[in-house]
Design a protein around this nucleic acid. Structure first.
Length: 562
RNA sequence: UGGGAUGUCGUCUAACGGUAGGACAGCGGAUUCUGGUUCCGUACGUGGGGGUUCAAAUCCUCCCAUCCCAGCCA
């Protein structure tokens, strides 16, 4: 990755960093990616990961990976593990800079006592409902809590007893003394410690109280000497609080929070809550279902880390909410795989084709390049014989204008093999085409002839005797509409799940070299698309996921003329 | 209707007072043993009204639209 020499496109965050470096405010930058381990990472997180780690790389700074694990009720080690794996898989290295907010619990607690001592925080006995009432509304100011002016000593005592587990959950909270009349609700004496008698996945049962995000995040950033703390737009309103805590405490630094727009991708959802729902309700088969926008899903589908990083670069970063076209992701995938995926032949919807003038029982080995974009990928042998399969779609009884695939009387090239001409069409009682009888030109071995004859159509094919049956999973968008944030009243995103998002093809056959295909390998099936071997693959059944199709200008043309 | 933010080709994103550029998508063409790739060409945009200025996407002003905020979630 260090070799990626690309022209960096400017953005507002780089502008800020450039200024901070130039002015001497910072000698080097420190960023961080701070996931909460309460779900799997998705491509929206990938944007943030690539942003933070990418900035650190480009500016020779560093990027921390820090788990924001302050709510044991929602968090789990399963998620910690998956996040670690996903970030690593994406190609990033946090080196020794792996942190957990829970590592700061002691320091955080000490700071809280300090805030109390300085009269900047108080223990409040208001219940959830009362608190909501006292908070006021968007247009009306809130009211001071009756406990707001408790003596410092009492606050301290109560807080210590909260810590000791003397009070039930919800009965007390620690709040900052700021301003109940603030137009910013976050500043209306926000709660920043609550009682939760839940075991934490790292600290076990040692804590009865847990600090909240607004308090924890800014201090964690400060302790780690983060210079630029990047987060999404919805935290803009929290920045005053971020700054308030840091101003109120003797922290070693005061990072700058900068907000950017989160990624929205067309035809999918990007909320952990919704994704979790999809998993739980069985609309998909798990977090790593190849239709999911999760890193795990994309990985299983066959997307490469390179393509996702490229995608993250290309979408850029700005403050305006936006929705990125899924086609850009496809483009990045194709761009990457075109360079490195080995070419193979497979037929998804086989139609039998017999070469009548080819010797019975003969088999030939034909030479085929593995990748026209990369000579070093070498060649392989493919088996040719009298009986073949071609794609049913590649034959048309009565060809339309512009058709240059197979049709009665027409000559086409079988890729890497021979020119053939179709002489006869065999149908069953229902009129279904069951077989094509063709003749081949033995002089065109390798798919080329000396006479300069123009044969425009080239088909992929598989020898019947050597065909390896495969299962192919064809995917489409998870949802039927591009913008899931724009759902009419009374409808749910569930109403827009695409029932066609997965089609399983059991008819497909592949050339013999694919018999040993191993999980995770990616190929281009000639003229069909990019495919990855799914982990469901067993010795008896090879399973391929279609990652994406190839561009298809013929299909496009047909669509346009209709 | 309080506060915070944002409006640039269909989409994403540059331009920071001086020719509105790039990418994806689109369209057209060339090359091609993948109707792939590659290459070339082409169309398309500053939310609106006022103002400042020789000059405005950029500065001022009014308006409009969209997004976020009333968890002891992050």
């Amino acid at each position: 990755m260090e070799n990626e020499t690309k022209t960096v496109v400017p953005n507002f965050i780089r502008t800020i960093i450039d200024e901070d470096l130039k002015s001497g405010k910072h000698a080097h930058i420190v960023t961080r990616f701070p996931p909460e381990p309460n779900g799997y990472l998705h491509i929206g997180h990938a944007k943030s990961i690539c942003l933070n780690f990418g900035l650190a790389r480009d500016y020779s700074g560093r990027c921390h990976l820090r788990f924001d694990d302050t709510n044991p009720v929602k968090e789990d080690v399963e998620y910690v593990d998956s996040i670690l794996e996903d970030v690593r898989w994406l190609g990033w290295d946090w080196k020794e800079h792996l942190y957990y907010a829970s590592d700061y619990f002691d320091q955080l607690y000490a700071y809280a006592e300090l805030l109390i001592t300085e009269g900047k925080a108080f223990v409040c006995d208001l219940s959830f409902d009362e608190l909501r009432e006292y908070r006021g509304t968007l247009t009306q100011p809130g009211k001071n809590s009756p406990y707001r002016d408790r003596p410092i000593a009492e606050n301290l005592d109560l807080f210590r007893r909260m810590k000791a587990g003397e009070f039930p959950e919800g009965s007390k909270s620690l709040r900052a003394r700021i301003d109940m009349a603030s137009p910013n609700l976050n500043m209306r004496d926000p709660v920043f410690y609550r009682i939760k008698k839940t075991d934490h996945h790292r600290t076990g049962d040692s804590w009865m109280i847990y600090p909240m995000y607004d308090y924890t995040h800014c201090i964690s950033d400060a302790l780690e000497m983060i210079t630029h703390s990047l987060c999404t737009l919805e935290f803009e309103d929290h920045r005053p609080l971020y700054d308030w805590f840091l101003d109120a405490l003797p922290v070693p630094s005061h990072p700058r929070q900068i907000e950017f727009a989160r990624l929205n991708l067309s035809y999918t959802v990007m909320s952990k809550r919704l994704l979790l729902e999809m998993v739980k309700a069985g609309h998909v088969q798990g977090w790593d279902d190849p239709r999911m926008p999760t890193i795990a899903g994309l990985r299983r589908r066959g997307f490469t880390p390179e393509s996702i990083r490229e995608f993250a670069d290309r979408i850029g970063v700005a403050k305006a909410s936006s929705m990125v076209d899924y086609d850009l992701l496809n483009f990045c995938l194709r761009e990457d795989l075109n360079k490195c995926a080995l070419r193979r032949m497979a037929v998804l919807d086989p139609l039998k084709l017999t070469i009548t003038n080819y010797p019975d029982g003969q088999t030939e080995d034909l030479e085929a390049e593995n990748n026209p974009e990369d000579e070093s990928a070498g060649n392989r042998q493919i088996k040719f014989s009298k009986h073949l399969y071609i794609e049913r779609e590649d034959f048309m009884q009565e060809p339309v204008k512009g058709w240059f695939r197979l049709a009665p009387g027409k000559e086409v090239r079988l890729k890497h093999a021979y020119y053939i001409r179709c002489n006869e069409v065999i149908k069953d009682a229902d009129g279904q085409i069951t077989e094509l009888l063709c003749t081949y030109d033995s002089q065109s071995r390798g798919g080329w002839s000396e006479d300069g004859r123009k044969v425009k159509g080239t088909l992929h094919w598989v020898s019947v005797a050597h065909a390896v049956p495969i299962q192919v999973r064809l995917y489409d968008h998870l949802f039927t509409i591009p913008d899931l944030s724009d759902i009419p009243e009374g409808k749910s995103y569930l109403d827009y799940i695409n029932p066609q998002s997965l089609k399983i093809n059991e008819l497909a056959v592949a050339e013999s070299s694919l018999a040993e295909a191993a999980s995770g390998e990616k190929y281009q099936f000639l003229r069909l698309g990019y495919f990855a071997v799914d982990p469901d693959t067993t010795k008896d059944k090879i399973v391929f996921n279609r990652i994406s199709t190839l561009r298809d200008s013929w299909a496009k043309k047909q669509k346009n003329t209709k």
